[in-house]
Design a protein around this nucleic acid. Sequence first.
DNA 1: TGTATTCAATACAGTAATGTATCGAACAGG
DNA 2: CCTGTTCGATACATTACTGTATTGAATACA
Lengths: 214, 214
Amino acid sequence: MTEQPTPPTRITPRRAATRQRLLAAASAVIAERGVNGASVESICEEAGFTRGAFYSNFATKEDLLNELMSQKHDELLGRIRTILERSAQDPPAGVEMVDYLVDQVMAANPQDRESRLVESEVGLYLIRNPEHAPLLLKAMQPFRDELLRLLTVGLARAGRRLAVAPEDALNAVIAGYETGTTAMWVAAASGHGEDLDVCRRTLTIIVKAISEPA
Amino acid sequence: MTEQPTPPTRITPRRAATRQRLLAAASAVIAERGVNGASVESICEEAGFTRGAFYSNFATKEDLLNELMSQKHDELLGRIRTILERSAQDPPAGVEMVDYLVDQVMAANPQDRESRLVESEVGLYLIRNPEHAPLLLKAMQPFRDELLRLLTVGLARAGRRLAVAPEDALNAVIAGYETGTTAMWVAAASGHGEDLDVCRRTLTIIVKAISEPA
DNA sequence: TGTATTCAATACAGTAATGTATCGAACAGG
DNA sequence: CCTGTTCGATACATTACTGTATTGAATACA
């Protein structure tokens, strides 16, 4: 399904660089105009290539989309792992742990906004094309697992533990993160500065709700 | 900004019906393919018109989009008001109140899925084009107000009250609803039937989190 | 250094979408 | 009725996008 035009082509450095530039460009364009608004043409333009480069590297737009998603997930996974390690060396105590983790997640990345937009687009894509759900869900599972680990470890360090089913806890936390960041950006757009607190408060509420003192 | 081609044209019944059919078609097509995937052509086809009808009724696609959004918000508002009234006549007591309200909201509408998709699309549109945020936010305010009323009244009937800032409570509840319905549809797509419980559980967690015994 | 290969650019043909200008059937008001 | 207006259909010109086939410069290799 995700097959190069010429199956086992050796990947030269040049080719790798081109692919990477196309992927980055796709991310930017999709964030700006959505999956359907991102024509092959526009992606290539953003990357500074012609469509020749595109079709030489990807069979279809969906092909590129799959690889982009896989990259985004790896990225996210890496970020969570980093936070886990960092928080092990430098562990705040008690309820501040929640604030600490939220800050870590939020502060992680300036291009977070772009990633969020791309992921939302793909989320919608998933709801719209339910036949693809199983595949994408499986791709997300490692990320969910790692996030759950971060959550339980973080809670343990704060002297708490999960009070609801792990799956439900994950859903709630992800909900809080998404709505929180959205509220934050909207607030920023309305003239008030980017208020990280909106996101932190929403997440804190939810983390308290899904946990109890150990 | 939202001006008819010929400014103060009298609205004949025929015209009104055409507009409505175009709006409904747009909703369906946008839900299926996204804002950018919904070409004027495809909307007209879905509605059973040619583009002549479209350009006779709307200046641009964005023009139609604005009207569509305004309709969706009115719809939502009406739904919440209905639940408020119904729950006054038939009030369950205690914590079951939460389940009751969630069920009411969930059971309300078979085309809910379509509305959710359209609203998500527009939410993304809002984040992407922050300059439009103030306008859309203002349009959403009545809805948020009414939802807050439903929440406080419902909580009061359950012998509880808000424990966090109203704005934060709203954000959290909306987050729960969105993630809950998404999880539900994804579960449905993965072979398990539509599990209303996923949504109910997520929302219950959140409602408990934002409230305390009165 | 010469030859083979790789890979993006170019050229081309075909399709889809846009917006405008015009036409004519349906439907008023008299 | 019939006459003027409304409104959606049609026709047309233009532009954007797609995908393929071919070319030629850069690169790897010997």
